[in-house]
Nucleic acid binder design. Structure first.
Lengths: 150, 150
DNA sequence: CAAAAGTCTACTATTACTATAGACTTTATA
DNA sequence: TATAAAGTCTATAGTAATAGTAGACTTTTG
């Protein structure tokens, strides 16, 4: 049940972009290079990831000097599920319970397949969290934890 | 978030072994060959999987003519989580939230890392289902669905 | 025009996955 | 006691996915 590095880096980058920018500007416009440095990721690898996210409509960008990436919508309108699916594909552990990419799994009777029933629960539990957690929620929670620790 | 074929086949086999045997004997003793045929899996591949499960203590076997595999404990004492971990490793999507195989993920501050907090929730949700669902539960549910469909 | 930024495509190395092969051991039973 | 049916164990191989590199190109600002 592994999140790939692409997924991990992409999620980290999106969370960073949802957070407060250094100069307080909004939308936060950040360069690949800076994200890569702050998260210690290969800039070239991150480049691909951000481009994918952009082509999926989750990020916008500005080319040229003073350019960079910024969220395509407000942080409360982008969920972890959307990001995850773009980078790592369907959430379901097995194709026969996937909403996004259903395929029969080859068991004699899908309706009564015990594995399918259990994996359906798992899929729903994961999707429930990922689809209901927005980037804004993540930022809020980080702040709450920081406050608590002080 | 993919279940591997090893995991899938292993879980299917365990569920079959937890179900009623053809002759009503208990514990159900079934041969690799028969499982492979009923589930349409390569017998040689399944062999490796069952051996792994055996070495992990979840299955027992009897060698020689009339032998086969059977559950090491009652179906209510074997959970999907145990099987999953043997075949597919830790449940956690990212190592820094793994109970079984923790490793730092390299973020500046783990305690306040938003990704880690979210993935921790995911890990818990998956583990909650997998560790609380026994093979007996799976069989029970299959039966319930069958009854309902009739 | 130069520098700073993103765009796009191709390539490569490593690892994980999904098997396959074959030689071996154990056990029941004819 | 020979034979066939079963599990045991290790090695290998093909394929696909992952993680990353490289480089040439475009856009924008000053």
């Amino acid at each position: 049940m592994r999140l790939s590095k692409r997924g991990e880096y992409g999620l980290r980058a999106m969370i960073m972009l949802a957070g407060p920018s250094k100069d307080g500007s909004s939308p936060a416009m950040v360069q690949i290079k800076e994200i890569a440095e702050r998260e210690k990721i290969s800039a070239k690898f991150l480049e691909q990831i951000l481009l994918t996210l952009k082509n999926a409509g989750l990020l916008h960008s500005k080319m040229g000097l003073g350019g960079g990436y910024y969220l395509a919508r407000s942080a409360s309108e982008i969920t972890l599920g959307q990001i995850f699916r773009v980078l790592d594909g369907p959430v379901a552990p097995i194709k026969c319970v996937s909403q996004m990419a259903y395929e029969p799994c080859g068991c004699p009777d899908e309706q009564t397949c015990g594995l399918r029933l259990a994996m359906g629960d798992v899929r729903n539990a994961i999707a429930d969290i990922l689809d209901k957690t927005s980037l804004a929620d993540v930022i809020k929670r980080q702040d709450a934890v920081r406050k608590k620790l002080k």
